[in-house]
Amino acid sequence: MIVFYVLFYIFVVVILVQLFFYAYVFSKVKQKSHSNISTDRPFISVIVCAKNEANNLEKFLPSILNQDYPDFEVVLINDSSTDGTLRVMERFKAMHSNIKIVNVKNIEAFWGNKKYALTLGIKAATHNHLLFTDADCKPVSNQWIAEMSRCFSKDHRIVLGYGAYAKVKKSFINKLIRFDTLMTAVQYFSYSRLGQPFMGVGRNLAYTKELFFEARGFMDHMHIKSGDDDLFVNQIATAENTVICLSKNSFTESPSKKSYSDWIIQKRRHITTAKHYKLRHKAMLTLFYLSQFLFLTLSIALISTLFYWEVVVGLISLRYIVLFITLTLAAKKLEEKDLIPLFPILEIFLIVSQFSIFIKNLISKPNRWK
């Protein structure tokens, strides 16, 4: 019987931790954007790094080239592709004078390293303000560059944007991927608002070329093949130099993985970089994910034994009420409203998936980049 008392009190602590995150930390996404938006329209270099992305460039590059912005160039980086990527780039360049191509060939020291290719592209960029996206991404509006660039200021030299995944009707895996993306965004937006920015996503990220070279580029983690976006932001972002952009016109959208197994492989690659975050960031992320796992397992254990079941059910209900309030506001802000009715189910699947990924990553290391 004493075991059940111990589990019950651990459960109470876990609920308090969860309420702290959902009621306080994650509530920051619902707040209005910063009021000190710049009216300047700086010259922008949009950077797209592509490896074997011929088809995606054909499909998505026009949405970048058709942006309603007076002064921007598009730097296309061909990272040692073996398909028709370079030919597609050259064809677009023949039609658009604001395209610059950087053709990267593998060298032994940086074989298959996306950071090396990105570094060459950044060096080739004409302008100081850099805006990054992926070859399979498209801005949701022709105001993407305008909205992201407005967030730059004398102090704000990093802009964190939202990179959504396209909705697929009647697809549970698509909803799970989008829920995971929503939860990730809620975290990095909220922590940035709290003065603790810790990551960004390369699908929609901006920073200055000047800041990149002040930080010695990717040199501090060049040996780690992943993390050209989140590790770099984790390294250089501060409360003073980072701002978030929540304007709906600033979002980008990418096609999501179609199968659960493909998504798990992608997710494993992304998660491996987290162990290289700063200690305080690893601690806060670990605390949240551990509390998620303990909430699920202890809820099942205590309800199945009916130990103090009235209190347990009450605490679970309180936790879900707070979760629904916070995530509903965030989902509306980030245009993910269709996920709201499925929050409890999606959360359970996500917790189980994350635990599975954790075990798999302990056994073997995933690969990175194409």
Rank of each mutant, 00 (worst) to 15 (best):
Q67I: 01
Q67H: 08
Y69P: 06
D71S: 14
E73I: 07
E73N: 15
L76E: 06
I77T: 01
G84P: 00
V88K: 07
E90Y: 03
E90V: 05
R91C: 07
I99A: 06
K100C: 04
K100Y: 01
V102Y: 07
N103W: 02
A109F: 10
W111G: 01
W111F: 08
K114S: 05
Y116E: 00
Y116L: 02
A117C: 06
A117L: 08
L118M: 11
G121R: 02
I122T: 03
T126W: 05
H127A: 14
H129T: 10
L130I: 13
L131W: 06
D136W: 08
V140E: 03
S141I: 08
I145W: 04
A146D: 12
A146M: 11
E147M: 13
M148I: 14
M148Y: 01
S149L: 05
R150Q: 13
R150P: 01
C151H: 13
C151E: 11
F152P: 05
R157C: 02
I158H: 03
L160N: 06
L160F: 01
A164M: 10
K167R: 14
V168Y: 08
S171Y: 07
S171W: 07
F172N: 12
K175W: 05
K175A: 13
L176Q: 12
L176D: 01
F179Q: 07
L182R: 11
M183S: 12
A185T: 11
V186Y: 02
Q187A: 15
S190I: 03
R193F: 06
R193Q: 12
L194V: 07
Q196K: 13
P197R: 06
F198I: 08
F198T: 03
G200N: 05
G200Y: 01
V201P: 00
T208I: 04
K209H: 11
